[in-house]
């Protein structure tokens, strides 16, 4: 009899405690987010539902009442705006990943180790994400400007709406090479040739997360939000080709 009571209590508490958290994730981070969610769910009763889209689209949806608890953006601007207009819990914003861009071609030996190919310009089309829309596109523009090739290459640039499309332009052969995210070529397992672009050539791509008002009082949302900052989650993020900010060093958040 006692045993039954215990079972019943456990069941009830499960119902009371197990919740679901809906996370809006920038398209470039969906794969790591899924892995993190899987790892999280192994030790938690809460379930994670992932909804992906471009940062701009998700932002617009959140502004108009989309049912998301957390937002993992591809930049820091959109989370900051949400914090400012009260859609996100103020003070919750943090950098969960630093994006790295590379110059990449699926053809081995095509891109050299110093990116000199940009100056030689022996290619017909170079793909990048739109600098106006995508943080990775902006970083690509900064690299080319720093190298002094931005103006000269204008006629040969093709812009994807986001970094995934830039990747698609290159892998389909429609562009000979392109600026893509390191995480993309890791995820696709695509070899070829790569220029690992030095960090000083572009401003860090700070991908920030915020807790949204809807998730403020949800145990599931808060637990997952904390888990994102755990060593385990950071390890997954690093393995996928991103850098992470040193623990406790979120000083740049105010930027």
């Amino acid at each position: 009899m006692n045993y039954l009571v215990v079972v019943a209590l456990v069941c009830i508490s499960q119902v009371a405690w197990a919740g679901s958290v809906t996370v809006a994730v920038a398209a470039n981070f969906v794969t790591p987010a899924r892995q993190i969610a899987e790892a999280f769910q192994q030790n938690s009763e809460h379930t994670v539902v992932i909804s992906s889209g471009s940062t701009g689209k998700l932002f617009a949806q959140i502004e108009h009442g989309a049912p998301f608890d957390l937002f993992l953006a591809a930049d820091s601007q959109r989370p900051r705006l949400l914090e400012q207009n009260g859609k996100a819990v103020s003070g919750s914003r943090f950098t969960y990943a630093l994006g790295k861009i590379v110059l990449w071609s699926p053809r081995p030996g095509y891109v050299d180790e110093h990116g000199d190919i940009l100056k030689k310009g022996s290619f017909k089309r170079l793909a990048l994400a739109s600098p106006r829309l995508a943080p990775y596109g902006l970083a690509a523009q900064q690299v080319m400007k720093k190298l002094g090739v931005w103006v000269g290459l204008q006629g040969r640039l093709v812009q994807g709406e986001n970094i995934a499309q830039a990747f698609q332009f290159v892998i389909s052969g429609n562009a000979s090479l392109g600026f893509v995210a390191l995480a993309q070529i890791r995820a696709a397992g695509s070899p070829g040739s790569v220029w690992q672009i030095p960090g000083e050539l572009y401003q860090p791509i700070r991908q920030q997360a915020v807790l949204l008002q809807r998730g403020k009082n949800s145990a599931a949302a808060n637990t997952f939000f904390h888990y994102l900052q755990s060593g385990e989650a950071r390890e997954i993020i690093r393995n996928m080709g991103y850098e992470v900010v040193a623990s406790g060093d979120q000083s740049h958040v105010a930027e």
Partner: peptide, 20 residues
């Protein structure tokens, strides 16, 4: 490929504005 004057058409321009 979103090239002004070549492939940057009206519907894409609207999409870009919304995204930005």
């Amino acid at each position: 490929g979103n090239i002004p004057g070549e492939t940057h058409v009206l519907s894409v321009a609207i999409y870009d504005h919304v995204e930005a």
